[in-house]
Write a protein that binds this DNA or RNA. Structure first.
Ligand SMILES: [Mn+2]
Ligand SMILES: [Mn+2]
Ligand SMILES: [Zn+2]
Ligand SMILES: [Zn+2]
Lengths: 151, 151
DNA sequence: AATTGATTGTGTATCATTCTCATTAGAGAG
DNA sequence: CTCTCTAATGAGAATGATACACAATCAATT
């Protein structure tokens, strides 16, 4: 839940006996430059990088996304499309949550400061080290309500 | 987010032109009789039913779980094991959330009334019809913190 | 009881993610 | 700067969860 630079990423990796690689640095940069409310799947990130001439293998993409999520650098989102999405795990002023239509998958971000407080307090009370805290609301959007039935 | 009986399930299905089948009724019952804090994956439900002599195909299990989640009868949980888990979607006094250790997957349930209020209000403000609202906290449990490194 | 189309079961297909392993290359030591 | 150690990468194969196709069945409505 902190802001990362290549340098701070490197020291955090090295502290654990791991290494900063060009691939990891590049992937972090992509997420840092991502427009607001944009989420990337592994496949999407892979193609985005291909488009920029960066040839990072899909295996490495998957490994890096998982690693960074477990370090608390990225958050892993289950946005109802059958595969995970990732975004930067940002602290307080930018921390937000997701409202998802289960029919059309339209997703809205919203903020609520008390939720992060609840998450922090709960983790602390149980002695857990907090990585991420996300409220996910599953619902049916207005358009899909009007479109009747289809599940 | 309501309490279901075979009868109310039937009428809600029929209202949409769908049918109450023995399989659907059985699956609902399983969830209604599940011990507190117990979550089931499709595969687990399948084997549980097999053990009770109920032969419901895995396809039907998957279809029914998805259907009931989209009806708001069950909630679909992403508990970090690589596959979905389901539990009854219960209203206020029993509504709860999950604190998950990303390393050992240990999961703790906790309650917090204000979260459901936030979810309800947010959905309402956007004109969404609320199905489920869950706070998921990803963290590292005390035991895994002591066990150093391993991601 | 007859009709209709939703639902089921079986087998197969798909797709996201992980694994294997030979090769490459960070990081720290000297 | 060079050497050593071992973490990380890339390519492809393997895995596993879930969806799909379709013929047979059966729940609801008349
Ligand atoms: Mn977001
Ligand atoms: Mn639960
Ligand atoms: Zn929608
Ligand atoms: Zn743990």
């Amino acid at each position: 839940m902190a802001l990362y630079t290549a340098t701070s990423l490197k020291s955090e990796l090295n502290d654990r006996g791991w290494r900063l690689t060009p691939q990891r640095e590049t992937i972090l940069q992509v997420f840092q430059n991502l427009p607001k409310a944009k989420h990337l799947s592994a496949e999407e990130l892979y193609h985005l990088l291909q488009g920029e001439g960066e040839n990072i293998s899909l295996s490495t993409i998957y490994r890096t996304l998982k690693l960074m999520a477990r370090m608390g650098i990225l958050r892993e989102l289950e946005l109802a499309e059958g595969h995970k999405h990732y975004e930067l795990n940002q602290p307080y002023p930018h921390h937000h949550h997701h409202l998802i239509c289960v029919r059309c998958n339209k997703t809205i971000e919203f903020k609520n400061d008390s939720i992060l407080k609840t998450g922090t307090k709960t983790a602390q009370k149980e002695g857990y080290h907090l990585l991420d805290c996300q409220l996910t609301i599953h619902a049916v959007c207005p358009a899909c309500q009007r479109a009747l039935l289809p599940i």
